[in-house]
C-alpha cells in the first residue's frame, strides 16, 4: 500500500521539485549576471533589467526579425543538409564494415580539429554571404551525425540482419525497413548533437565575417559600444538554443524510453 502510494506520489512531486530547482537556478543566474554587471560596469555588460526592457522593445522591430530570419535561414539549410548527408553517410558506412572501419578515425580526427581555422577557406570557396555560413554550419554538424548513426548501425543486433537476409530483402529495403527503425534512438541523439554544433558553426560564421544575422549583431554591438544590443542578442541566442535543445531532448527521451518502439511502428 505504502509502496503504491509512494509510487503514485513520486511522479507528481518530481515536476514540482524540477520547477523549484529551475526557479533557484534562474535566480542564481540573474544574481550572478547582476553581480558581473556591478563589477564590470555599464560599458561592459548591461544589467538584466535593462537587457530585458531592451529586448522587449527590440523584438517588436522588423530589424530584429530581419537578422533573426537571416540566421534561421542559414541554420535551416545547414541543419537540413547535415542531417540528410550525415544519416545517409552514417547508414552506408555502418553497413559496409570495411569502409566504416577505414573512415572512423578519419572522421574522429575531423571532429576534434578546431574547424574555425578552416573558415577562411570556406569563405574563399563560397564567397561572403549565405552559402559560406551554411557550409560552415554543415562542416560542424555533419561529422557527429555520421559517427552516431554509423555506431548505431554497427551495434544493431545481428539477429535482425540475419532475419532480413532470410527474407531476401535487398540492401535498400534492409536499410529502410530494418536498420533505420532500429537505429532511430541513437540517430536522434546524433541529430541533437549535430543540431547544436550546426548552430555554433553558423553563429561563428556570422561573428567573423557577415553583415547579417544574430552573430553579426553581437559583434557589431561590441564594436559600436552598444552593450545592450550585445547582451540582449546573447540572451536571445541562448533562449533559442535552450528551447530547441529541450524539444529535441524530449524527443530523445520518448524514443529512448521505448527501445524497439520505432521498429514496431515500421
Amino acid at each position: 500500500m505504502s509502496a503504491a502510494l509512494s509510487a503514485d506520489v513520486r511522479p507528481a512531486r518530481k515536476p514540482r521539485e524540477g520547477a523549484f530547482d529551475g526557479v533557484i537556478i534562474l535566480v542564481v543566474v540573474l544574481a550572478l549576471w547582476q553581480g558581473v554587471h556591478l563589477y564590470a560596469g555599464e560599458s561592459a555588460i548591461a544589467s538584466p533589467l535593462a537587457t530585458l526592457t531592451f529586448l522587449a522593445e527590440f523584438l517588436r522591430t522588423p530589424v530584429f526579425w530581419g537578422h533573426f530570419g537571416a540566421t534561421m535561414a542559414a541554420f535551416g539549410y545547414a541543419v537540413a543538409i547535415s542531417s540528410v548527408l550525415g544519416v545517409v553517410l552514417g547508414l552506408v558506412l555502418g553497413v559496409r564494415r570495411f569502409a566504416g572501419d577505414v573512415a572512423e578515425p578519419i572522421l574522429a580526427g575531423l571532429y576534434s580539429i578546431p574547424k574555425v581555422t578552416l573558415y577562411p577557406m570556406i569563405l574563399l570557396i563560397f564567397g561572403l554571404g549565405m552559402s559560406a555560413k551554411v557550409a560552415f554550419g554543415v562542416i560542424h554538424g555533419v561529422v557527429p551525425i555520421v559517427l552516431f548513426t554509423m555506431n548505431a548501425v554497427k551495434n544493431v543486433s545481428p539477429v535482425l540482419l540475419r532475419t532480413a537476409r532470410a527474407m531476401r530483402l535487398s540492401q535498400p529495403e534492409t536499410i529502410r525497413t530494418v536498420l533505420a527503425p532500429a537505429v532511430l534512438p541513437e540517430m536522434i541523439t546524433g541529430l541533437r548533437v549535430g543540431f547544436s554544433l550546426t548552430l555554433l558553426g553558423v553563429l561563428i560564421g556570422e561573428m567573423f565575417a557577415s553583415q547579417r544575422g544574430l552573430g553579426f549583431l553581437i559583434v557589431n554591438g561590441i564594436n559600436l559600444h552598444n552593450v545592450r544590443m550585445t547582451t540582449g542578442m546573447i540572451v536571445a541566442v541562448i533562449a533559442f538554443a535552450l528551447i530547441a535543445n529541450g524539444l529535441l531532448l524530449s524527443l530523445d527521451r520518448r524514443f529512448g524510453r521505448t527501445p524497439g518502439g520505432g521498429s514496431r511502428a515500421a
Partner: peptide
C-alpha cells in the same frame, strides 16, 4: 553544450 559559448566572447 547546446548553447554556442562563443557568443559570450565579445562580453
Amino acid at each position: 553544450y547546446s548553447v554556442p559559448s562563443f557568443i559570450f566572447y565579445p562580453l
